[in-house]
Design a protein around this nucleic acid. Structure first.
Lengths: 386, 386
DNA sequence: GGGACTTACTTTTGGTGCGAAACAATTGCT
DNA sequence: AGCAATTGTTTCGCACCAAAAGTAAGTCCC
């Protein structure tokens, strides 16, 4: 099966750019592709021919509008055979493995989760292997596996350090590949989500793109020129050093007003519990804030101002074309989006280009999908480069 | 002369990359060039031949060390004939025009300033024309003119808005070209300095590079992938919206703790004057602070902390490989560099890559040189792209 | 001082990728 | 039917480049 997956792999740079453009955008005619890639019509004929022969692309019937009132020879759009291959994506959390099956175009076609009762690397790999076997029954043409882990990952293969799994230098890709025979890509979960959004999501085709995730922790991803910028500190207690408000609330870690203590879900719940003595879920707190319950409203308002400050700083220094807010903790935007926007406006130059701020509430399956996209990416790009 | 300047202009992309590499780095052998550009030795022969024939490059004698104890055939480094052309750079301030003559490699070979008694566009262009004529007497082979202006510049030609000259939509490039017959490039002064540093200075060859200037105002330049990122608000009262310290000192503009009010030379002088009633120059204030005079020491210390905060934020979000601090107001670093470093460290993750922070005190001739470099760049790059 | 070795550069050759232009296909309009 | 418009195909040639083989110019060492 691995050999089969590799059959359409050796692509030239031109072929690859065509494949990626169709993959990411959807059906496109040759002329349209020529326009987008800045190539001549002749080159497109040359480039698409082997792709069609190899089965990665197909000519599809003229799309939705059948009798399109246009002159000239009708175009024959090309599309990837999205169902020809399936990919697996896993997100490993402390107590659960979330799994999804996606098409080549990263549409989720199945979900499957399993509790994680052990953190022993071999046993975790066993669980992943079993889940793969189960999913392979319904989706026979699996081409690759992507795994997202919170923590520091090296070479897309080895979990260098994961605080919550208590792992150090675990060659997870190798372990899972032994059990499944499929190519495996392991990546930090935030990094995987960022890459996925860069390819198939909000960051498609952008030159400067930022992803900010809010959940149990904070995550930051910077994409410049289509490539994610790696950095040493990612997901190793990130955001604790972003001082947003020197007068902010004190939190268990003893620092005042850092981004983690003001924005993450555990910190917000902690603040409410410390003030009211009662434990609420994040959703309950948001609902209370929306209903103008003073204490939750104040905490949420402060979080919104902190978020606005962060966004403004990012805009001022990075000037991204778009910022994506993702994660489980962006429900904040529904309740206090206006405060965020006001804070951003207040800390930016009036002539500055307005922020393109996109909010995307994500659950754990979205994180798993991100890992699957990374597997797609590595396979289509021929694993040569990032 | 313009036609002469254009004689070595039509370069292929390969030739251009060779020319630029030699231009910005200095003498390089063909083998070394092949290594740097990722080309084969054969290609270098092919590419350098026309460049040598056209006179842009020359083979130079084995450099400094004459009898280098190396085996094998000695290399024959190639160098640009730096003196074959001269370039002019002007920096226009409210009351003075600063002018420099530079070689192809942007070494300043002459300086010439003139007071500016009027802000009328035509008369300013006259002054520039006269200065050009004077300088052309001693430096006959002028190939281009670069002009740096504080304010908003469009298309490298038109001063869209300059607050201190009170200009709107002045086609300065055209006006000066009419009077001199030379190709003219007009650019925002900060932008020109940033481009110059990217080419010939601290940012050479870097992928992510930030320039922060401190002087009468603040300037910010972001270079990604070798290209400067333009933004709408540059040099239109920049930095007033960067809130660095919500508890910072109140300043004339009524906002607290923004970067302009804590860092720029006029603001620091204002703070001292407001507190002590005496007016001091910036240098005097730094000297007083170094001598531990309490009030100046406190103001400078606060400025250093503000600068540290800015640098940390830039590092956290942009992750540049280097930050260059330039301008007349970076003398701060000599007196309070330690505070800056401590503040940066305090607001960054301990695992984060350390900042490469370079300080470069610049006077107005450096700004003029920046404009000249832009002229070089546009001419060598064939004015096609940025 | 002369062969062995090393490194720098040149020439030749062949391949690749692309654009330009001519050509074929398919439709709408008159 | 004839023409214009549009898409896609084929052919040809150019520009570029890498690989390999050849040439140049020195050092090393006996």
């Amino acid at each position: 099966m691995t050999a089969g997956a590799a059959s359409w792999l050796p692509l030239s740079t031109g072929e690859r750019s065509v494949a990626i453009e169709v993959l990411v955008h959807g059906p496109l005619s040759r002329t349209e592709l020529a326009r987008r890639l800045g190539l001549s019509a002749g080159s497109l004929t040359r480039l698409t021919k082997p792709l069609i022969e190899s089965g990665l692309l197909v000519e599809v019937a003229e799309a939705g509008v059948p009798a399109e009132a246009r002159q000239g020879r009708p175009s024959t759009p090309l599309d990837v055979v999205a169902d020809s291959r399936s990919f697996l994506g896993f997100k490993i959390t402390e107590d659960t493995v979330y799994g999804v099956v996606t098409t080549l175009r990263s549409h989720i076609v199945a979900r499957h989760d399993r509790p994680l009762t052990t953190h022993d690397p071999a046993e975790v790999a066993d669980v992943l292997g079993e889940m793969t076997a189960e999913l392979a029954r319904d989706h026979p043409r699996l081409a690759g596996i992507g795994i997202g882990v919170g923590g520091f990952v090296q070479d897309r293969a080895v979990v260098g350090e994961s605080p919550f799994l208590l792992w150090r230098d675990v060659p997870l890709a190798e372990l899972v590949q032994e059990r499944t025979g499929l190519p495996v890509v392991v990546e930090n979960d935030v990094a995987a989500l960022v890459e996925a959004e860069t390819w198939f999501g909000a960051g498609r085709g952008l030159d400067r793109f930022v992803v900010l995730t809010i959940g149990a922790g904070l995550g930051y991803g910077l994409v410049l020129g289509g490539k994610r910028v790696p950095f040493a500190e990612e997901d190793r207690g990130f955001g604790r050093h972003w001082i947003v408000d020197p007068n902010g609330p004190l939190t268990p870690d003893g620092r005042r007003g850092n981004a983690v203590s003001m924005l993450t879900i555990p910190s917000i719940r902690y603040q409410i519990q410390a003030a009211t003595g009662r434990d609420h879920t994040y959703e309950e707190i948001l609902a209370l804030a929306a209903a103008k319950d003073p204490m939750p409203a104040r905490v949420v308002e402060e979080a919104a101002r902190a978020l606005g400050t962060l966004v403004a700083q990012i805009c001022n220094f990075v000037m991204p074309q778009k910022i994506l807010l993702a994660g489980e903790g962006v429900g904040l935007m529904d309740v206090a989006g206006k405060t965020v926007e006001e804070t951003v406006r207040d800390q930016r130059h009036p002539l500055a280009a307005p922020v393109d701020l996109e909010t995307k509430v994500s659950d754990f399956h979205d994180w798993a999908r991100g890992a699957a996209v990374l597997a797609i990416k590595v396979l289509v790009l021929g694993s040569a480069e990032a």
